[in-house]
Amino acid sequence: MIIPKSYVEIADLLEREDRLVLFFAADWCPDCHFIYPVMPEIEAENPDCTFIRIDRDEFMAMAEQLNIFGIPSFVVVENGKEIGRLVNRLRKTKEEVNSFLAGL
């Protein structure tokens, strides 16, 4: 999982042509801590995706621009275009995330 440190790094990543999964989270979030342990499995089961963990609080302007108010949330971008989102305030399971990604 890529963890960017700046908006410039995120902008560079978004220019890539591969399928990017923007995983918005925050370390204080209990629902994020629920999904953290299975994220390596989700990544392994979706090898066609590049996962990018974005700290929602550190990159609040980006989160607001993308209407990310509940975390954890997932936005999938391919060739610079959003192709799907799993964005809400609910806890997500491994099965739910994998099902979402498989449906894209």
Rank of each mutant, 00 (worst) to 15 (best):
E41R: 15
E96C: 01
S99Y: 05
E96Q: 12
A63T: 00
A11Y: 10
M62I: 15
G80T: 09
D48H: 12
E9K: 10
P72M: 02
P37V: 05
C29P: 02
N79L: 13
R85V: 02
R19D: 04
S99N: 13
P30K: 06
I2W: 06
P72I: 02
G80E: 00
C29T: 03
F100L: 01
P37Y: 06
M1Y: 11
R53M: 14
P37W: 11
F24T: 04
F24R: 07
R89G: 14
I54N: 01
L13F: 11
V76M: 10
S6A: 05
P47K: 14
D57A: 11
E78A: 12
F34L: 09
I83R: 04
R56V: 10
V8F: 07
Y7K: 12
L66W: 13
N88S: 15
E64C: 13
K5H: 11
M62S: 09
R16L: 13
R56I: 03
E58P: 04
I2L: 15
L101G: 05
K94A: 05
I10F: 07
P40A: 09
C29Q: 01
K81C: 00
F100W: 04
A11H: 12
V97H: 01
F100S: 01
L101Q: 06
E95I: 06
D57I: 08
I71V: 11
D48S: 12
M39I: 14
K5P: 04
A26K: 08
F59I: 07
V77M: 10
F100P: 00
A26M: 07
T50A: 11
P40S: 10
A102L: 09
E43I: 15
V21W: 02
I68Q: 02
D31K: 13
I54F: 10
D27R: 15
P37A: 12
R53E: 14
E9Y: 02
M1A: 14
R89S: 15
F51G: 04
L13K: 03
P47L: 09
L14F: 12
I68M: 07
F59E: 05
R53F: 08
A44K: 15
P30N: 07
I10W: 08
F100Q: 06
H33E: 10
E82A: 02
E9S: 03
S99G: 15
N46D: 12
R85C: 02
L14Q: 09
F69S: 04
A61G: 06
I54K: 08
D12E: 15
G103Q: 09
C29W: 01
F51R: 01
N79E: 14
R85D: 00
L22G: 03
I83T: 08
M39K: 05
E96R: 00
I52K: 07
L86S: 01
V21H: 03
V8D: 13
D31S: 08
D55R: 02
K94L: 06
D12M: 08
L86N: 03
E78V: 08
K94W: 03
G103Y: 01
I83W: 03
